[in-house]
Amino acid sequence: MLYRVEGIVIRSMDYGEGNKIVTLLTETNGKAGVLIRGAKKVKSKHASLAQPFTYGEFVYFRTSGLGTLNHGEIIESYHVLREQLELAAYASYAAELMDRTTQDDEATGFHFEQLKACLAALALGKDAQVVIHLYEMRILDLSGYAPELDECVSCGNRVGPFKLSAHGGGILCGRCTGKDTGAIPLGEGAYKLLKLFRRMDMRRLGSIQVKPETKAELKLCMRKLMDTHLGLQLKSRSFLDQLDKLL
C-alpha cells in the first residue's frame, strides 16, 4: 500500500552500506519506520530527508512492517538544530522523548503538532530550557500524568504556599506537606509558570523571560515529575546534563 504523509524524522540509523532507516512521527498514521535507499551517499537526492528533525512529505510503500521511500519533499529542514550543539541536544531530547512515549499505532495528530511547534520554537531562538519544560509538560499530559496544580491533592485547599509532590500527582498545601517529605518547595514564579505550562499548547508559546533561579526550580520540578511518572533512561537527556555542566 502506498502512503503519503507529513512527518518529522525522530530517529535515523544506518542500514547496510548506503541506506538509512528513519522513524517518522506522522500527522495521520502514527509512527512509521521507512527505509531510504542510498541516503548515505553524497549525491543521493534523498539524503536530506534522512536527517534528524527534518519535517517533510514522505511517500512510501508498505505492506507490513518497514516501509520503503518512493519520494519525498522537505517542508522545513530545521538545519539550525543540527548545526548548533546546544540546540541539537535539546532537539534530540524532544525527539527521543516523543519516540519513547508514543506507540506505533497511536493517533498522533496532536503529538505531531506539539513536536513540530517545539522544534520551531527552538529554531527561532526562544529560551531552549523554557521550551523543553513546556514540552515535557505536554508529554506528561499526553501520557496521562499531568499534575494537579490548582488545589492541594490531599485536602483541596487552594491557598498557598505550596510544595510539589510528584508522587502525590500535584501540589500539597502547608497543612499537608508532611505527607510527602520529598515534596519540592515552589517559589511564586515557578508555581505560576507550572500552572501556565499545564494548560498551554506549544503552538501558543511566545517569548518568555525567566530568571535563572526560577529556571533552576522549574528544572528540578519537571525532572522529578518525569522521573516519577515516566521513568525513562534517555541518552539525549544524559548528554544534556553533561552539556549543562560544561556550559
Rank of each mutant, 00 (worst) to 15 (best):
Q114V: 07
L232Q: 02
F53R: 08
L205I: 10
R100L: 08
V210A: 02
A117G: 09
K20L: 02
L240K: 03
K40S: 09
L24I: 12
L230S: 06
C173A: 11
I184N: 00
R158P: 09
L230Y: 01
R199V: 12
E76W: 00
T63G: 08
P52E: 00
T28F: 09
G65L: 06
L140E: 03
C155M: 01
H46Q: 08
I10D: 03
L243A: 10
S77Q: 11
C173N: 07
A146G: 13
Y191L: 15
G125W: 09
E83D: 13
L220G: 04
L142S: 10
G125M: 07
K163L: 02
R204P: 03
D105A: 14
E113D: 13
G18F: 02
D127G: 10
K192E: 13
V42Y: 13
G109F: 08
G38M: 07
I132Y: 00
I184K: 01
Y90A: 00
P147D: 03
R37Y: 10
R198V: 00
I208H: 08
K41S: 14
D244A: 07
A50M: 04
D104P: 04
G182C: 07
F112V: 01
A47M: 10
D150K: 11
L115R: 04
C152V: 10
Y3F: 15
A95F: 04
T63Q: 13
N157V: 12
K211S: 13
A32K: 15
P212E: 06
S77I: 05
K219I: 03
A50D: 05
N29F: 13
L24N: 11
S12C: 05
G170K: 11
A89H: 02
A94M: 00
S154D: 12
Q129Y: 09
Y78T: 04
G178N: 09
R4Y: 14
E83T: 11
A190S: 14
L124K: 15
M13P: 01
P52F: 02
S44L: 06
M202D: 01
Y78E: 00
E151S: 15
